[in-house]
């Protein structure tokens, strides 16, 4: 069965993924809305930066974050001015890295939904008496709920599978930065193939069932609504 170390890693991973997803669901909708609607000249640049983690090797991202977190640089210095512990090799550091790393997975489904949203629904909402922001969270966001669930699910799943970035900035501290994928790597390194199998199978089953729900149900449902 699962060892205490495994359980601790699973719990830490879920905590990291949960917190990251929560924060992303606050940051991503306004960003995706702006990307979908803005005519600003800098929009393509911002869009590229958001998409960067999709193609950049996670180790590169992790390396730059590690440098940014060090006391020699602005972010790290600023953080240490009111914290005792450095961002590097800490859970908070992992959360920040995960937000950057998983951002495109949350932004893109939302951006796509916002692009395909018929502007006429916004007009009707206005004529029904709903103000600029009210019409978004009372009518439009509920209408695009499947896309919000897809975005959250992809962000959550992608954070769970994070490895390269964690390796660079998190190290391998049990209960603090030792997440599932690192634990799995450890098992393989120490030739504990049974435990490695257990964890791998869990991750595989989780990912497959999530994608089946997303592509088999949520995405179809959203398309039906958007094409109505």
């Amino acid at each position: 069965m699962l060892s205490d170390g495994d359980l601790q890693a699973i719990w830490l991973t879920l905590k990291l993924a949960g917190l990251t997803t929560l924060l992303l669901m606050i940051i991503a909708p306004p960003l995706a809305w702006w990307l979908a609607r803005s005519q600003a000249k800098i929009r393509p640049l911002v869009e590229s930066l958001v998409a960067l983690p999709l193609i950049l090797p996670p180790t590169v991202l992790g390396f730059y974050l590690l440098i940014a977190f060090s006391p020699n640089h602005f972010l790290g210095r600023w953080w240490l001015s009111f914290n005792e512990q450095s961002l590097a090799f800490s859970f908070t550091g992992l959360v920040i890295a995960s937000i950057v790393y998983s951002l495109p997975f949350v932004v893109q489904p939302l951006q796509s939904a916002f692009v395909h949203l018929d502007k006429r629904y916004l007009e009707v909402s206005a004529t029904l008496g709903y103000g600029k922001y009210e019409r978004l969270y009372k009518i439009i966001f509920p209408m695009l709920l499947p896309s919000f669930i897809i975005a959250a699910a992809l962000g959550f799943a992608h954070t769970i599978g994070e490895f390269g970035v964690v390796l660079m900035i998190g190290g391998n501290i049990p209960g603090e930065t030792q997440v599932l994928s690192i634990q799995l790597f450890d098992h393989v390194e120490s030739l504990q193939y049974d435990q490695a199998h257990q964890l791998s199978l869990m991750l595989l089953a989780f990912s497959v069932s999530l994608l089946v729900v997303i592509y088999g149900f949520l995405q179809k449902r959203q398309q039906r609504i958007l094409n109505a």
Binding site: R120, Y121, E123, V124, A126, T127, L128, G129, Y130, G131, K132, R135, I139, P142, M143, L145, R224, I225, L226, A228
Partner: peptide, 20 residues
């Protein structure tokens, strides 16, 4: 005065009901 404050009931050419 923005649209939402004008209190105009609007029926468009197509119904525009919310599909969800």
């Amino acid at each position: 005065v923005p649209t939402e404050k004008r209190r105009i009931g609007v029926v468009f050419q197509e119904p525009r009901l919310f599909p969800h």
